[in-house]
Simulated assay, not measured.
Amino acid sequence: LLSVAEFLKVKRSTDDDPDDNAADAAANLEQLALSRDEERVASKVRFDLDLPSAAEDDVVLGDGIPLPEWDYRKGLLREDHVRLQELAASPRDPRAAPVPLPQHLRRTARHLHRQFAALQPGRRWLKGQVDGSELDLDAVVRAATDRAIGHHPSDQLYLSLEKRERDLACLALADLSLSTDAWISSEARVIDVIRDSLLLFGEALSATGDRFALCGFSSVKRSNVRFHRLKDFSQRFDDAARGRIMAIKPGYYTRLGAAIRHATSVLEKQTAARRILLILSDGKPNDLDLYDGRYGIEDTRVAVIEARSRGIVPFCVTIDREGASYLPHLFGPGGYAVIREPDELPARLPMFYAQLTR
């Protein structure tokens, strides 16, 4: 009876009297319980345990970027409604230091490197050209024969060496929200699979010579969308880039529309014939504010439509088994792929890129 009574609002004569032994009593308790009361307080203190301290956070790049957001309830695009902050891995993090490819990925990386090396730009000889670096012997023989029998010979007597180009640019955008901290097996979490996927993706595309960038994102409401620059288009995929990928940490939420809009603006600056936005996700768009539910879905859908209208090809790869219930609305029937076994993502992600760039 006494243990239950402690949680009831019972009037006691000693309630308002200070207890000199309260600290000692609390120290001896195994658990402390809190209950609500109806008394008004003069002030409140709010702690946001989601955000790290400035000393432990990643390096902030710039002053932040205002972005719009679609409000489906009002049917309008709310200008400068979101603020996105670009970040880079902190040099204080030992994983951000240059590191080689992890041992457990090296065999798969060699296999992908050989496969993707075949996609490198090649050269071929064009026959029957008016001008070229060498004579086309077959054309010369035909011209001599035509001349001998009185016909007018062709002047297309040369071989020309043509260099084939792959005019592509790809940005891989990974979801780094707190849901990626979930375990998919006794040995790995979702964030571990995403790290391995980005590492192998970088190894594969390095073999093709295609331009690519690697980024990640998370969010804490509309005023703090976090966009991590892991490898820019102008940077090499080297041990330093691998270190930045190894330094990524799960946290916060998934404001996908803002991340897609900023990734689109980054891709737009690349002068390539084809520009691909490859999105890695493990669930629906969500955030602490109104972005959860249909609001986030509709904003993401509009962001995808905007990207396509600007010449970008968005494609989403997800390990969310329920993805087929909402991804067709976001990306269309051919704009996404659901991977049932998350541990298959690292090896399959480069294959999706190969299919998109045929």
Results as ranks from 00 to 15, higher is better:
234 S>P: 05
266 V>W: 07
308 R>L: 06
319 I>E: 01
233 F>V: 08
248 I>G: 02
345 L>I: 04
226 R>S: 02
278 L>V: 14
301 R>D: 03
316 C>T: 12
280 L>Q: 01
317 V>L: 11
297 I>F: 09
338 V>P: 00
276 I>Q: 08
297 I>Q: 12
315 F>H: 10
281 S>T: 02
289 D>I: 11
283 G>F: 02
339 I>F: 00
336 Y>R: 03
331 F>P: 02
317 V>C: 10
229 R>I: 13
329 H>Q: 13
340 R>C: 02
345 L>T: 01
289 D>F: 08
210 D>C: 09
313 V>C: 12
296 G>T: 07
243 G>E: 04
319 I>M: 02
339 I>W: 00
245 I>H: 00
334 G>S: 11
277 L>M: 14
204 A>Q: 02
232 D>E: 13
282 D>L: 00
227 F>M: 07
289 D>Q: 12
314 P>L: 06
239 D>R: 08
243 G>S: 08
276 I>Y: 13
340 R>E: 11
203 E>G: 05
344 E>K: 10
226 R>E: 07
201 F>T: 02
312 I>C: 10
329 H>F: 14
329 H>A: 15
275 R>S: 03
257 G>D: 13
252 Y>W: 12
305 I>W: 11
251 G>A: 15
342 P>I: 00
306 E>T: 15
264 T>H: 07
322 E>G: 14
296 G>C: 07
220 V>Q: 10
241 A>V: 05
255 R>D: 03
297 I>A: 08
277 L>D: 04
334 G>L: 14
329 H>D: 13
264 T>F: 06
265 S>T: 15
309 S>A: 14
342 P>M: 05
327 L>P: 00
294 R>I: 14
276 I>K: 07
200 L>C: 05
246 M>G: 13
215 C>W: 04
344 E>W: 10
321 R>S: 07
312 I>A: 08
216 G>N: 01
295 Y>Q: 11
332 G>I: 00
297 I>M: 10
286 N>Y: 09
265 S>L: 10
204 A>S: 09
285 P>Q: 09
299 D>V: 03
265 S>C: 11
310 R>K: 15
294 R>S: 06
251 G>Q: 09
212 F>G: 00
231 K>L: 14
239 D>E: 15
232 D>H: 15
273 A>E: 15
233 F>R: 13
260 I>G: 04
224 N>P: 01
260 I>Y: 03
228 H>C: 05
344 E>N: 11
229 R>H: 09
343 D>G: 05
335 G>A: 05
216 G>E: 00
261 R>G: 05
223 S>Y: 10
310 R>D: 10
222 R>N: 06
289 D>G: 12
229 R>V: 14
219 S>N: 01
244 R>V: 08
292 D>K: 15
216 G>D: 02
341 E>Q: 13
232 D>K: 13
265 S>G: 11
276 I>H: 12
300 T>M: 13
245 I>W: 01
211 R>T: 06
243 G>R: 00
320 D>T: 07
292 D>H: 14
338 V>W: 00
334 G>Q: 11
218 S>Q: 06
258 A>S: 11
246 M>W: 05
330 L>E: 01
323 G>L: 01
323 G>T: 02
259 A>V: 10
337 A>M: 04
306 E>Y: 12
242 R>M: 10
309 S>M: 08
274 R>P: 02
211 R>K: 13
289 D>T: 06
345 L>M: 15
199 L>H: 00
213 A>E: 02
221 K>F: 07
233 F>K: 11
